[in-house]
């Protein structure tokens, strides 16, 4: 039953790892701007589809 030491040790180590990750993410400024990233993540696709749209419209014009 000494396994309980190991179990507790592991659980605490995991908790501490998450805690350190949290501190790190705060430090990097992740929580300074809570709004922009939610919009930004929707952009990348738009840009590509737009390019293809431009090409399409150009090819239509050529016809």
């Amino acid at each position: 039953m000494d396994i309980i030491f190991l179990m507790i040790g592991v659980s605490i180590v995991i908790a501490v790892v998450f805690f350190i990750l949290f501190i790190k993410s705060v430090k990097s400024g992740q929580y300074d701007d809570m709004y922009t990233p939610s919009v930004r993540m929707l952009f990348e696709d738009e840009f590509i589809s737009d390019k293809s749209k431009v090409k399409e419209s150009k090819s239509i014009n050529q016809k």
Partner: peptide, 21 residues
């Protein structure tokens, strides 16, 4: 930017959960 309050909450929340456990 003062982030100390977030750190403090993080520490307190971490301790709160684990102590309960």
């Amino acid at each position: 930017i003062d982030r100390s309050l977030i750190y403090k909450i993080g520490v307190a929340g971490f301790a709160f959960g684990n102590i309960m456990l």
